[in-house]
Amino acid sequence: MSDLPLWATLPATVLLVAGGLFALTGALGLLRLPDFFSRMHGPSMGNTIGCGCVLIASMLTASAVTGRLAIHEPLITLFIVVSSPVTSMLLMRAARYRDRARNAVRPGRAPESTDD
C-alpha cells in the first residue's frame, strides 16, 4: 500500500479508528458489565459496527489497490449477519435454561434473572 488515492484512505482511516474503538469498547463491556445477560450486549457491538467498519475499509483499500471494485468482502458481512443471531439466541436460551435448572436444584437461593 505505497501510495493509495485520497478518496480511499480518508474514509478508510476514519472507519478503521471508529471500528477499532467500538470493538474495544464492546470487549471492555464484556469485562465490566455486572451479569451475564448484560454482557451479551458487549460482543454484539464488535460483531455489528466493528465488522461493518473494517469490511467497508477493506473494500475501499482493496478496490484502490487492484483498480476495480472489490466485491467479495460483503460475503463476510452476510455471513456474520446470518450467523451471529443464531449464536446469540442459542446462548441466551442455554443461559436461561441453566439458570432455571440451578435455581430448581438449590431452591434456597434467590432466583436471579429469571422471569418465570
Binding site: 464492546g26 445477560f37 451479551m40 450486549h41 458487549g42 454484539s44 457491538m45 460483531n47 455489528t48 449477519v81 451471529s84 443471531p85 446469540s88 439466541m89 441466551m92 436460551r93 436461561r96
Partner: peptide
C-alpha cells in the same frame, strides 16, 4: 433485534 446492541432476543 440481535444485531442491535442493547437488545437481545430471549424467547
Amino acid at each position: 433485534i440481535t444485531s442491535t446492541p442493547g437488545t437481545a432476543w430471549a424467547d
